[in-house]
């Protein structure tokens, strides 16, 4: 029925679901390749000496880079949790909606991050072309010392 919510009880029950933690190694080469892809020549992302002069142990990541692939494993892990339901709801087209990020400790080459993703929210909105499902995935990144380095909230739009 057209005016029935696509956020069924089955979908609602998925809010709060946690993914298995994923380990991400942060490598110098991956940081440089990422910065190069954007034509970002900031020396903190490329040159070890410049990073050390700025007080870092090694080159640091542009905020939002968490090791390669940046959203592959952690975000897809979260997304796969809702994937089956999206198919049931007849929503096959997926778009990236945006991000909301907090950075606590700069991430540097040599760090090992542990990422855990939670389905933080699922809600519905009426768009021009019909109903859309907005899913917010919240990923928390811990470093090798167990400190929280960053939190990333990504919104996935399915329509």
């Amino acid at each position: 029925m057209a005016d029935e919510s696509i956020v069924t009880d089955e979908i609602k029950a998925m809010i709060g679901t946690l993914s298995e933690p994923i380990i991400m190694e942060v490598e110098r080469g991956a940081i440089r390749r990422y910065a190069d892809a954007v034509d970002d020549d900031n020396p903190l992302f490329h040159e070890v000496e410049d990073a050390k002069n700025a007080g870092y142990e090694d080159i640091i990541c542009p905020p939002g880079f968490w090791g390669w692939p940046i959203k592959g494993r952690a975000a897809v892990g979260g997304l796969s949790m809702v994937g089956a339901v999206l198919v049931k709801a007849g929503l096959f087209r997926i778009l990236d909606g945006g991000v909301d990020q907090e950075f606590y400790i700069p991430i540097r080459a040599g760090d090992t991050l542990t990422a855990s993703t939670k389905i933080a929210d699922i809600r519905e909105r009426e768009g021009k072309a019909g109903k859309m499902l907005f899913t917010t995935l919240e990923t928390t990144y811990l470093n090798q010392n167990g400190d929280t380095v960053a939190v990333n909230r990504a919104t996935v739009i399915a329509r």
């Binding site: 954007v38 900031n42 410049d50 542009p62 905020p63 990236d96 909606g97 909301d100 907090e102 950075f103």
Partner: peptide, 20 residues
């Protein structure tokens, strides 16, 4: 990059958000 270019080597990003 807009932000990190502007804040220089001694600046740090604390929060960042954008919508596509």
């Amino acid at each position: 990059q807009l932000v990190t270019d502007w804040i220089g080597a001694k600046g740090r990003v604390k929060k960042f958000a954008c919508q596509y």
